[in-house]
Nucleic acid binder design. Structure first.
Length: 908
RNA sequence: GCGCGGUUAGCUCAAUCGGCCAGAGCGCCUGCCUUACAAGCAGGAGGCUUCGGGUUCGAGUCCCGGACCGCGCACCA
C-alpha cells in the first residue's frame, strides 16, 4: 500500500482535504424527515463584520464537540449557523470605508447607503463563516441564515406587530442613553460604565429675593446646569427645611427655578442640595416628572450645545463648554469649591464615546411581563444554566430589568413597521406596508425612520432561523433547541431576550440548557482586546504565520485546527476563565502529533496482516480493551455533564499513557515472529487489538480533533480491511459513524490493578538502570520475591510482559519469600521485592541511599496512620470500612518497611 | 455598597461525597537520535494548599472572619 505516512503530522494539507470531503459528502446536513431524537444547537451568530477570535474558537469548538458527539450517537442533530447584521457596528464599518473615500452617508442618502452596506456584506460578510468552516465547525451550512434575510425580516415584523398588539411595545418620550457619535439611542446594557477621576464642582445659586444668599449645589457635569429647572433637597434636611419653595436664579441663564423637596436626595452627599436637570439625567428626569418640572434640553444630537444653552455656548462642544463655563463661574465668583471625585462615566459599547442621558421619543419593549415569564421558566427548571451559579446572575437581571429601548437612529437594520398618518397623526403598526390610513383614509403616510436594535432580531434567532412565522417541519422537529453555548458577556443582551421572545411568541422556551463557558484571557489574566494588542489570532495558530502579541512578534508554523481545538478544550475547566498564550497551545499540537504517530505505528504493523487464527487475547490485550471501555464510559459521562476538559484529560491519558507508553511498547515483541516465541497467531491477535483500539480511540477523539481522526479512520479502514474491525467501519465517514458504547463486560478492575503492579515493578527496574547509568535496553536479569503463592501465580502468568517491557535477558525468576540473591540491587514495591542482578555494579552506598529514602517516607506515612488509629475517637466515630482500610494500610506499610529494613541490615 | 469567582509546585491549572502518598502540562536537572513520535523516550528534584479562627475522628475540600487579585451590578448631584 503506497500511502505516505510522514513522521511529523502536517495538519495543513490534511485538514483542507478532510474539510472538502465533509462538505462534498453533505455529512452535516440535518433532515427533520429522518426522524429519531432531535438534538439542536443554534450558533450565537457572529457579527457579519467580525473576524474569528479566540472566544469564537472556544465557543464553536465546544458546540461542535456536542454536535459531533450526539451525531455519532445516531441522534438527529442540527447545528444552525448564520451571522448577525450588527446594526451600529456594521454601519460604522461602512461609514469608515466611505470616509476613506471622502464620502459620508449623508452624501449618499439612506437608500444608497443601505445599498452600499449590502454590497459590503456580499463582499466581506462570509469571512467569519469561512473561518468557522476552517475551524471544523460541523454546522448545516446549507441552512446558513442572516438576520436581515427576507425570512428573518418577516419574523421581525411579525414579532414587532404581535408585541405591539399585546401592549408590550410602546412609543414614548423618555430619557435614554444617547451616543453623540453614532447619533442613536442605546439600550441600558449597551452602555459600558468606567470609573473616571473627575471633579465635584460646588456652584452657588443665589436666591431671587436676596442674591447675596443662596444655596450651593455640587455637580460632576457643570455644563448641564444650563438646563436646570429646580434645585432639590431632602424634606427631612434641617439645613434646608425652611427654604423649600423659595426661588433661585440659575446663574448665567438667569432662569427662575424653585427649591423643591424630594425624598430621593441624599443628605450626606455633597451639600445636600442637588441641581435638577430633567432632560439630562435619569434621576432628575424621574424627579422632574414627579414635580412636573420643565424639561429643557441644552444639547444637540451630536454633543454640541444648542440655543437653550445661551448665546455664548450655543454650538460649542459639550466638553469645551464645561471648561468655558467653569471659567465664567470662577470669574463671577460662583464656583465655591472643586473636589477631586471618582465617578463612573457611561461609554458607547460600539464607539466608546461618552454617552449622554437624553430625552427623546423612542420605542420600548415593556419588560416586566416578559421577564416574569422568563423567571418562571427557570424556577420551573425549564431553562437551566451550567454552571449553576449563572442562574442567580441571570435572575437578578430579570428581576431588576427596565424597559428596553429598541429604536435606533441609524439606517442599517430592520426598519420599524410603523406608519404615521400626516393628516390625523394616527400610528399604524403592521406586517405589510401601509398605504392608506385606517382611521382617516389619508394616503399621506410616513414610515418611522428608525430601525430596531440588532438584539431584537437576534432574540428571535432560535425560531426565526427555522422558518417562523411559517410552521415548518424544522420548527416542529428541532424546536426547542437542546442547549445554548455562549460566553457570560451576552447573558443579558441575548440569552435573556431569547428566552422572553421564545416564551411569548412560541409559547415554549427556546432551549433547555444554557452552557456558559470560560472567557479567554491573555497570560496576564486580561481580556484579549485590540487596544491592548494581547489577542491571539486563531487563524494564525491554525495555519501558521506571524503576528504581534503583547508587543512582540511571534511566529507559529501552524498547529492545525485540531491542535488548537484540543488545547482549548483541555485547558478550559468548567466555570473558570482560561489564560491562553501561544506556548500553551503547543499542548494540542503535540498531542495530535502523538496520536498521528501512534496511528502510524499501527498502520506500519498492519501492512502485512497475519493470516493465522488469532491466539487468545493476552493479558495486555484485555488490559488495553478494559482501559478503552473505561475511557468510553468516562468520556460519555463527562460530555453529558458539559465537563469537556475532564473528557479531554481522560482521552489524553488513555492515548498517551495507556496506549502509547504501555500497550504499543508491549505489542512490539509480539509483532515479530520468532523473537520471544511470538507466533503468527500472536501477531494476528495484536493486529486485531491494535485496530480495534485505534478505532475506538478515533471515535472518542473525533468530536475534539475531527480532522486528524477522520484522516486516520479513513486509513485504518484500508489497512484493516481484512480484520474484524472492518465490520464496524462501514459508515461513509467517521463523522457519520456511530460511537462504540462502553461494554461493561470488558472493564476489568482486577486486570487494571495487576497492570498497575507490573508498571511499578518495571519502573523500579528502570530506576535502577538510571541509578547505575545502564542503557535503557541493556539486557538485565531480575528475580521477584512475592508474599504468597497466589501472587506468584498471577505474576508468573505475566512474566513475558515484564520481560518485554523491562528489557530483561530472560524471564524473571519468581518465588515466594525468596532470599535476596547476592550482588543485586533491591527495590521494595509494596509486598514485592525486585532483585536486579548487577554482578560487579552493586554499590552499597547507592543501595543504602535509595533504601534510606524509602524508609523515611514509609516511617512518615506509618506514623501518620498510626496516630490516626491510636486516636480513640477515630476508631469509634469513623465509618468501619474507613478504619479497617486504615488498619490494612498500616499492616501493608509495615510489611514493606520491614523488607526495606531487612535489606538495609543486609548491607551492613 | 451588594453579589460572584479566584488564591494549591518556578509558571498555568487539576483534585468527584470531607477519608490511601495533593496530581498533570510547561519549565528545571540526569541520561537517551531505542525502527511510531526529539512536537519524542526514560529517570528525578520541586508543596506550611493566601492568612486567622471554627466544625469534625479527619479539612485543599464545610462554616465564620480578614487580606489580595479578577468580574458583574448599583450608586456616583
Amino acid at each position: 500500500m503506497a500511502v505516505e505516512l510522514p513522521a511529523q503530522y502536517d495538519p495543513k494539507a490534511i485538514e483542507e482535504r478532510v474539510s472538502r470531503f465533509w462538505l462534498e459528502g453533505g455529512f452535516f446536513h440535518a433532515d427533520p424527515a429522518r426522524g429519531g431524537k432531535p438534538y439542536t444547537i443554534v450558533i450565537p451568530p457572529p457579527n457579519v463584520t467580525g473576524a474569528l477570535h479566540m472566544g469564537h474558537a472556544l465557543d464553536n469548538t465546544l458546540q461542535d464537540v456536542l454536535i459531533r458527539w450526539h451525531r455519532m450517537l445516531g441522534i438527529n442533530t442540527l447545528w444552525m449557523p448564520g451571522t448577525d447584521h450588527a446594526g451600529i457596528a456594521t454601519q460604522n464599518v461602512v461609514e469608515r470605508k466611505l470616509a476613506e473615500e471622502g464620502r459620508s452617508r449623508d452624501d449618499l442618502g439612506r437608500d444608497k447607503f443601505v445599498e452600499e452596506v449590502w454590497k459590503w456584506k456580499e463582499q466581506y460578510g462570509s469571512r467569519i463563516i469561512n473561518q468557522l468552516k476552517r475551524l471544523g465547525a460541523s454546522c448545516d451550512w446549507e441552512r446558513e441564515r442572516f438576520t436581515m434575510d427576507e425570512g428573518l425580516s418577516r419574523a421581525v415584523r411579525l414579532a414587532f406587530c404581535t408585541l405591539y398588539k399585546r401592549g408590550l411595545i410602546y412609543k414614548g418620550n423618555y430619557i435614554i442613553n444617547w451616543c453623540p457619535r453614532c447619533l442613536t439611542a442605546l439600550a441600558d446594557d449597551e452602555v459600558d460604565h468606567e470609573s473616571h477621576e473627575g471633579h465635584l464642582w460646588h456652584i452657588f445659586y443665589p436666591y431671587e429675593d436676596d442674591p447675596s444668599e443662596g444655596v450651593v449645589v455640587a455637580t460632576t457635569r457643570p455644563e448641564t446646569m444650563l438646563g436646570d429647572t429646580a434645585v432639590a433637597v431632602n424634606p427631612k434636611d434641617e439645613r434646608y427645611k425652611d427654604r423649600i419653595g423659595r426661588m433661585l436664579i440659575l446663574p448665567i441663564v438667569e432662569r427662575r427655578i424653585p427649591i423643591i423637596a424630594d425624598e430621593f436626595v441624599d443628605m450626606e452627599f455633597g451639600t445636600g442640595a442637588v441641581k435638577v436637570t430633567p432632560a439630562h439625567d435619569p434621576n432628575d428626569f424621574a424627579m422632574g416628572r414627579r414635580h412636573k418640572l420643565a424639561e429643557i434640553c441644552v444639547f444637540n444630537e451630536n454633543g454640541t450645545m444648542n440655543e437653550n444653552a445661551g448665546g455664548a455656548y450655543n454650538g460649542m462642544d459639550r466638553f469645551e463648554c464645561r471648561e468655558a463655563l467653569i471659567e465664567e463661574l470662577k470669574e463671577k465668583k460662583l464656583l465655591r469649591k472643586v473636589d477631586p471625585h471618582q465617578h463612573s462615566v457611561g461609554h458607547c459599547y460600539r464607539c466608546h464615546s461618552v454617552v449622554e442621558p437624553y430625552i427623546s421619543e423612542q420605542w420600548f419593549v415593556k419588560m416586566r411581563p416578559l421577564a416574569d415569564a422568563a423567571i418562571k421558566a427557570t424556577e420551573d427548571g425549564r431553562v437551566k444554566f451550567h454552571p449553576e451559579r449563572w442562574t442567580k446572575f441571570y435572575l437578578s437581571w430579570l428581576e431588576n430589568v427596565r424597559d428596553w429601548c429598541i429604536s435606533r437612529q441609524i439606517w442599517w437594520g430592520h426598519r420599524i413597521p410603523a406608519w404615521e398618518c400626516q393628516d390625523c397623526a394616527h400610528i399604524e403598526v403592521a406586517t405589510e406596508d401601509v398605504t392608506a390610513c385606517p382611521k382617516c383614509g389619508s394616503t399621506m403616510l410616513v414610515q418611522d425612520e428608525d430601525v430596531l436594535d440588532t438584539w431584537f432580531s437576534s432574540s428571535l434567532w432560535p425560531f426565526s432561523t427555522m422558518g417562523w412565522p411559517d410552521r415548518t417541519p424544522e420548527l416542529d422537529f428541532y424546536y426547542p433547541t437542546s442547549v445554548l453555548v455562549t460566553d457570560r458577556g451576552i447573558i443579558f443582551f441575548w440569552v435573556a431576550r431569547m428566552v422572553m421572545m421564545g416564551l411569548e411568541l412560541m409559547e415554549k422556551e427556546p432551549f433547555h440548557d444554557v452552557y456558559i463557558h470560560a472567557t479567554i484571557l491573555d497570560e496576564l489574566g486580561r481580556k484579549m482586546s485590540k487596544s491592548l494588542g494581547n489577542g491571539i489570532d486563531p487563524l494564525v495558530m491554525i495555519e501558521g504565520g506571524e503576528q504581534m502579541y503583547m508587543g512582540r512578534k511571534f511566529e507559529c508554523d501552524g498547529y492545525g485546527a485540531d491542535g488548537l481545538r484540543f488545547s482549548l478544550v483541555i485547558l478550559t475547566k468548567e466555570g473558570q476563565d482560561v489564560r491562553v498564550s501561544p506556548s500553551k497551545l503547543e499542548l494540542g499540537r503535540n498531542f495530535v502529533n502523538k496520536l498521528w504517530n501512534a496511528s502510524r505505528f499501527v498502520f506500519m504493523n498492519l501492512e502485512e496482516i497475519s493470516q493465522a487464527e488469532p491466539s487468545a487475547p493476552s493479558f495486555e490485550d484485555a488490559w488495553i480493551l478494559s482501559r478503552a471501555h473505561s475511557t468510553i464510559r468516562a468520556v460519555t459521562n463527562n460530555i453529558a455533564e458539559y465537563l469537556f476538559n475532564d473528557a479531554a484529560t481522560a482521552l489524553y491519558d488513555f492515548v498517551w499513557r495507556d496506549f502509547c507508553d504501555w500497550y504499543l511498547e508491549l505489542s512490539k515483541p509480539r509483532m515479530n515472529a520468532g523473537e520471544g516465541g511470538a507466533t503468527p497467531a500472536d501477531r494476528r491477535r495484536v493486529q486485531e487489538t491494535l485496530s480495534e483500539t485505534l478505532n475506538i480511540l478515533v471515535h472518542l477523539l473525533h468530536p475534539v480533533t475531527p480532522f486528524v481522526t477522520e484522516h486516520i479512520w479513513g486509513l485504518l479502514k484500508e489497512f484493516a480491511a481484512e480484520l474484524p474491525v472492518a465490520g464496524k467501519m462501514t459508515a461513509p465517514a467517521l463523522v457519520r459513524s456511530s460511537c462504540p458504547a462502553a461494554d461493561e463486560s470488558l472493564i476489568d478492575a482486577g486486570i487494571e490493578r495487576d497492570m498497575a503492579s507490573i508498571q511499578d515493578i518495571v519502573r523500579a527496574v528502570r530506576s535502577v538502570r538510571r541509578e547505575k547509568n545502564l542503557r535503557d535496553r541493556e539486557p538485565l536479569r531480575i528475580a521477584i520475591s512475592v508474599a504468597n503463592p497466589e501472587d506468584k501465580a498471577r505474576l508468573d502468568a505475566k512474566s513475558a510482559v515484564i520481560r518485554n517491557i523491562a528489557f530483561l535477558s530472560e524471564a524473571a525468576e519468581i518465588a515466594v519469600n525468596m532470599p535476596k540473591p547476592t550482588r543485586c540491587a533491591v527495590c521494595v514495591v509494596g509486598d514485592i521485592q525486585v532483585f536486579v542482578h548487577l554482578e560487579g555494579l552493586v554499590d552499597a552506598e547507592a543501595e543504602r541511599a535509595r533504601l534510606d529514602k524509602q524508609r523515611e517516607s514509609l516511617e512518615g506515612r506509618i506514623g501518620k496512620a498510626k496516630a490516626k488509629l491510636s486516636n480513640e475517637n477515630f476508631v469509634s466515630k469513623a465509618p468501619e470500612d474507613v478504619v479497617a482500610k486504615e488498619r490494612e494500610r498500616v499492616a501493608e506499610l509495615e510489611a514493606e518497611l520491614q523488607k526495606v529494613m531487612q535489606n538495609l541490615r543486609d548491607l551492613d
